[in-house]
Simulated scan of single mutants.
Amino acid sequence: MARKIIIDTDPGQDDAVAILLALACPEALDVLGVVAVAGNVPLPLTERNARIVTGLSGRTDVPVFAGEAAPLARPLVTAEHVHGQTGLDGPPLPEPHLPLDPEHGVDFIIRSLRAHPNQVTLCPLGPLTNIARAFQKAPDVIPLVQEIVLMGGAYFEVGNITPAAEFNIYVDPEAAEIVFQSGAPITMMPLDVTHQALTTAPRVAGFEAMGNHAGAMVAAWTGFFERFDKEKYGAAGAPLHDPCVIAYLLDSDLFSGRTINVEIETQSELTLGMTVADYWGVTDRKANALFIRDMDADGFYALLHDRIARLP
């Protein structure tokens, strides 16, 4: 039976690849909906991008919702310097032909968890604002969550938006604190693992060689997206962060980590948004997350190439 998931996202080129990967695997993943959140770019762009990407997959059965337009307690911080002014800069973008569902994304999350108790995995690829708002609005749904598999945080790699913080957590640390303290089962894909998923030239060429529109779009998106990280880190390519979430659901054997305590810094000016990961067990704080540290990058890209090639 396909695993029911909700993708919560702020597309973002790597978000787009993650969405396509999920929608390419209906036999394994039943995508109940895609919910946009403000993050990489403001909400009017993220919901538009989510509709464009979902439409590119050829799937017209997956609804797209708009969620929260701002963090719980702070002004929105965005990342046009990485993703471009649209959030999906690179190839020319078509107009979205999928409509935006009129239901608020937070209400959709709540309704879905109540309709499918302990059967829905939440897949946040951006700031955790929508998930936290759902937990605040309807605390009864927290024990109904099967699992949260998220991209966010770091420990050994530390920060990519500040010296101490990863972008998704930094944008809404109060939301992250609510989610990590909720008691829901959490698996996190931090920078420590996503930085191993580099878009090297042969891997990008694999998308170009597919001969389908989805493969060409992924190659073009990664070609744009990687320019920032290659300059910043001096690496051979850019990390494809968000597809790690979906790849984990498809083949968890590609990843390894350990269950630890993770706390979110919400007060310090220097370390705001830091994921304080007790990786070595030096405190007696209760473990609350599976922290993924390592991956089989070649296996990850083999999976990506195989599944993206299925799309139109």
Rank of each mutant, 00 (worst) to 15 (best):
E166K: 01
R133S: 14
A201Y: 07
G159P: 12
A132K: 03
A165W: 02
P143Q: 13
T194Y: 05
V149A: 04
V149M: 00
A184M: 06
A164R: 07
M151S: 15
I178R: 01
D192F: 04
M188G: 11
V171N: 02
A138S: 09
A164H: 01
M151R: 15
T129I: 07
G153I: 01
A197T: 06
Q146K: 14
P190I: 02
A154M: 12
D140H: 09
N130K: 08
E157G: 00
M189G: 05
Q196Y: 04
A132P: 06
F167M: 07
A176P: 14
Y170T: 05
T194G: 04
Q146S: 07
T199F: 06
I161M: 14
V145D: 01
M151P: 13
A165R: 05
P143K: 05
L150V: 15
F180Y: 15
A164G: 00
T194H: 09
A134M: 02
M151D: 14
E174P: 09
A132T: 06
H195M: 06
N130L: 02
Y170V: 08
E166F: 04
I142G: 01
L191W: 09
A175Q: 11
E147G: 07
D172H: 10
I131Y: 02
Q136D: 13
D192C: 12
T187K: 12
Y155I: 03
L144Q: 13
R203H: 05
R133L: 11
V171Q: 13
Q146Y: 02
E166H: 00
L191K: 03
R203T: 02
S182Q: 11
A175H: 01
G183A: 04
N168I: 03
R203M: 02
G152H: 02
G153W: 02
V158K: 15
G153T: 02
D172N: 09
A175S: 05
Q181C: 10
E166T: 01
Q181R: 15
V145M: 05
G159D: 11
V179K: 02
K137T: 13
R133W: 03
V179L: 08
V141A: 00
A132C: 07
G152I: 06
P139M: 03
A164L: 00
E166Q: 14
F135E: 00
G159C: 08
Y170N: 15
G183W: 06
A197V: 11
P173K: 09
P143L: 07
L198Y: 08
F135N: 04
A154Y: 08
F135Q: 00
G153H: 03
E177Y: 08
D192N: 11
Y170A: 08
G153S: 12
I161D: 12
V145K: 00
T187F: 04
E157F: 09
